[in-house]
């Protein structure tokens, strides 16, 4: 092969790579710019909001953050959201890891029936069952309060997707795992806790993020269950800024900006777990 065509091939490769980076960058900007806009608009002077919506703010004003935090109890809503979302995620993992293990790795006749039963939940349009659900749970609400009672539908609601993802993942693990474990003298508890769970961490991470985001942003159940101001979560707190007279944009966008921080933090923490392990494998390939 002549050196000239070699140079051309390298140039072509470089061009291709360059083009790819440009496209990836373009996509990244299309994601980042609107998000930056959200933060920017929250600190923008409200009068300027409609006049120069997309430019850089001419003056910066953080007072709206103080205002939503103090006057509109966004802090209280944040705490409610954090408690509810974390408890849901933890309880959901406990239930779905055990169930997935039994479904995916253990041998019994009705495992697929149970899986199918749990998966029906993926297909139920949530809004349709709210009223009967609420009626069913009234005794619970009256006994433990709406903030605790809402955990029941939240955790149950996350089970289908969690079991679906975790059991799919566990099924993809090779059969040799159990064989090796048994040769090493593991009992079933050790097999579950020491071997299967650590191996399923990528799936656990996906499920954690998905469930957290789902509950963190859930509005409809919260709307019906958490009617009292003191109980409300962030998506409900956000409603406060829209009313008959229009929307208070600075307050809304400031609250949105506050609300994404925990989700992003969680992703950043889990991403290491998620992607470190996985890319180490494929880098050689």
């Amino acid at each position: 092969m002549s050196s000239r065509s070699n140079i051309a091939a390298i140039a072509f490769l470089k061009l291709k790579r360059g083009l790819a980076v440009v496209l990836l960058m373009g996509l990244a900007i299309s994601v980042l710019y609107p998000l930056a806009w959200t933060v920017m608009s929250s600190i923008r002077n409200p009068q300027e909001f409609f006049l120069n919506p997309w430019g850089l703010p001419t003056s910066i004003n953080f007072s709206v953050y103080k205002k939503v935090w103090n006057e509109f109890y966004v802090g209280r809503a944040l705490l409610n959201s954090l408690t509810i979302a974390s408890l849901t995620v933890i309880l959901s993992l406990a239930f779905s890891l055990t169930a997935s293990f039994a479904i995916a790795r253990m041998r019994w006749r009705f495992s697929n029936v149970v899986l199918a039963f749990l998966l029906t939940g993926l297909m139920i349009p949530g809004h349709s069952t709210i009223i009967p659900l609420y009626l069913t749970l009234i005794p619970v609400i009256e006994a433990v309060g709406a903030k605790n009672a809402i955990l029941i539908p939240y955790v149950a609601g996350t089970l289908p997707i969690s079991v679906f993802i975790i059991s799919s993942y566990m099924r993809s693990l090779p059969n040799s795992v159990e064989e090796a474990a048994i040769i090493d003298g593991c009992n079933i508890r050790q097999l579950f806790f020491r071997i299967i769970i650590p191996m399923s961490l990528p799936a656990v991470a996906s499920v954690t993020i998905f469930n957290f985001l789902g509950v963190w942003n859930e509005l409809m159940l919260a709307l019906v269950f958490l009617t009292k101001n003191a109980e409300q979560t962030l998506p409900l707190a956000l409603l406060r800024f829209s009313g008959r007279f229009g929307t208070q944009w600075s307050e809304t966008l400031a609250t949105v900006s506050i609300a994404v921080i925990p989700s992003i933090l969680l992703y950043v923490i889990l991403q290491e777990k998620l992607i470190k392990g996985m890319t180490a494998g494929s880098v050689k390939g």
Partner: peptide, 8 residues
Amino acid sequence: VAPAVLLY
């Protein structure tokens, strides 16, 4: 399996 199934 029971805890998940019962709650659900």
